[in-house]
Design a protein around this nucleic acid. Sequence first.
DNA 1: ATTTAATGGTGTAAATTTTACACAGTATCT
DNA 2: AGATACTGTGTAAAATTTACACCATTAAAT
Lengths: 231, 231
Amino acid sequence: MEVALPTFNSVFSIDCVIFGFEAGELKILLIERNQEPFKDWLALPGYIVEQDESIDDAAERILYELTGLRDLHMQQFHTFGEVNRHPQGRVITVAYYALIRINGQKELRPVTQYARKAFWHPVNELPKLAFDHSEIFETGFNKIRRRLNYQPIAFELLPEKFTLTQLQSLYEAVLNKKLDKRNFRKKMLSYGFLKELDEKQKGVSYRAAKLYKFDRRKYAKIFNNELNLDK
Amino acid sequence: MEVALPTFNSVFSIDCVIFGFEAGELKILLIERNQEPFKDWLALPGYIVEQDESIDDAAERILYELTGLRDLHMQQFHTFGEVNRHPQGRVITVAYYALIRINGQKELRPVTQYARKAFWHPVNELPKLAFDHSEIFETGFNKIRRRLNYQPIAFELLPEKFTLTQLQSLYEAVLNKKLDKRNFRKKMLSYGFLKELDEKQKGVSYRAAKLYKFDRRKYAKIFNNELNLDK
DNA sequence: ATTTAATGGTGTAAATTTTACACAGTATCT
DNA sequence: AGATACTGTGTAAAATTTACACCATTAAAT
């Protein structure tokens, strides 16, 4: 009983929720669509998966084509498969998130015609998005909010060297609540994966803060130990 | 610029990792395939999504057709999209898990020809499975292990009335470590969502233990409060 | 030179939670 | 009556979490 796979007009797509942090605010990357359906609408960067690429590869490619961004560490978080989520046919979409340092230098420039432009938008006061992208964003935002507690994702959003106040304000932005300064510092430093640098912040008109770095190797060591000790 | 969706020979499928608990052991549901490729192999229950059904609906239907089980609360956990995971073409699969009480009465009987039989198998010493199903299982097992800590999924695996010892042994089976009896009870009861019944265990040849019930309404109340109080 | 404005950096005590640990009680079976 | 097998219970020490306020430092303004 050998059965060929059916041929359906079914399409996989990828949608990306890319978070950035700038001026104490959490932002995501949106595009302005230049293609029907939802032409001229704002949307998450997303497009169709080719037949000969894995979905992880597709996610990288699609993000690059629509925004010019490359080499992000993207992570799948949910698949949306309602029948009528796309007005033109059956499209199941796998949603990915990534976190990056917003960098004024790095220009956002779509490589394809499908997006007219790409830009950062604060996660608060998001406009209505094309398709079910508002729902996709919400789901992704909830995921990273949860993951912030057990994965070192905060450091992907900050510059390589950062102050403890910057780190705290990122946590506050994602979790949407105030944290206690002394307790926050005590706890963060107690983990032992932050490396204090000899440098200080520059260009501020008040006392400059010490800079820190995230030590990925120490983090891995600590994390592995925790898994192995297993009391 | 209106563009029709491309027609690909691309297929969505669903694979199910269904956990059960019996005789102090955690088990999953396997089928014996009756169809190429991987005919006669053991595999997770899985099949192809139709064009006019959502992936959530498909998951329920497919599990029913291959095992005879219905009305489980299934939850998507990961999507597998490597190019060559299926020998006959491009198949992207969305993996779901569910947890159920294994019930001797309830017969496992495939409704379609695609599975020869369905049966429970302990999660330890799993044989090699068809396709990338071993990897899918591992991913799913890791997910529920993590979720056990913040979602009331344990109670879906136990009979409606259970003893604290049964509950503990379930935690031990999933987490794969011994827990302290007194501390476990103290903590579980402190949550306040277990209802102590007037009944006792029956049919044991030693002192019978008290039976408890999971109180879903109290759980929801507590859980919501936690979210709202937000200190 | 002094003042002002803005943020940096620091410690302690109380409360809560987590951990480690052992034995008498009870039901059943023989 | 005794053996067997599991139930059910408390406490003290350790660790973690919480609440809380002020002086120090720098650059800019006067």
